[in-house]
Amino acid sequence: MALRVKYALPVHRFLYGCAGFIVNFVVPIYIYTATNNLTLALAFFLAKYCASAVVAPAIRSWTRCKPLLLMLMHTLLFFAASLTLVFISFSYPTVLLIALLFALSEIFYNTSLNIIFAVTVPNSLATVIQMPFASGLLLAGIAELGIKLPIVPAFVVAAACLFLSLLPLIFIKNDIAILNTKVLSEEIKKPYRDVKRDFFHLSLGLFSGVAFEILPFYLVVNQGLFTLALPMLVIFRALQLIFIKVGDIFHKKGWYNIAMAVCPPTLAALLILTAIFKEQKAAYYLYAAVVAVFPLNFIPNSPLITL
């Protein structure tokens, strides 16, 4: 089981990352470039976030359904949203519809993710979290190097990646119950109603939305073109490896407080610098650094589960 899970999850996350990148990164940029309307693109973000906030509690009782079914629904909704995006003319109602479909798709994925992956993955948490960003930036790098996909083939590629990403999950289908049992023994023992914890998640949600969805859009708007240089990718990969190793050391030594003291202030400083240098190439490097440092925020406080 351990061997299958070990390879199935990262493979799934990598493939899913290629598709997820296109949704979170390209869709608002596509809306903006097609309409030259900044407000319309921001309306997409707003509608998507509102729908996610409403849908997440609404499907609470569904979380005990078969997670693979949720994953399938996620894929179908992604298809529906992509087709709507490609074949429809943009206006506020249509953008809201697209945002709703993408939000539903995303929340179904997150819900099933919590169950299928049992949240934690041994000794590679940071790697798994970064996988979508890694593959996404890789895709952007390929595009920058000349294989620039028009929007329709791009979504075909994204959809293909989504379907392919489901295949590795078949190998762990029978292990889900065992994974759940293991993770539940480590999870919080009772429902929490802690204001401080809620505020932490509010901060985390706001930061991750700005850093990983709006910031790329921000850079494109300010620089007028969609460029991600190859040197940035090299630096990003190097930083990623370093910070994954740093996170691993911090976890082994139990330096969680230090990680928290280092990571969020660094992220804040990087975001401010990105805003200052928004019209320069350096902004992309700073964005890459934000992505690379982020896993330090997820050093677990409980013993990792051995699968």
């Binding site: 707003l46 976030y49 906030a53 901060s203 949600g205």
Partner: peptide, 17 residues
């Protein structure tokens, strides 16, 4: 707990737009 967390994560994102 997961639902509560997802809700707050999504809710906070609304602030940016």
């Amino acid at each position: 707990n997961q639902t509560r967390r997802e809700f707050f994560l999504a809710l906070a994102k609304i602030v940016a737009p």
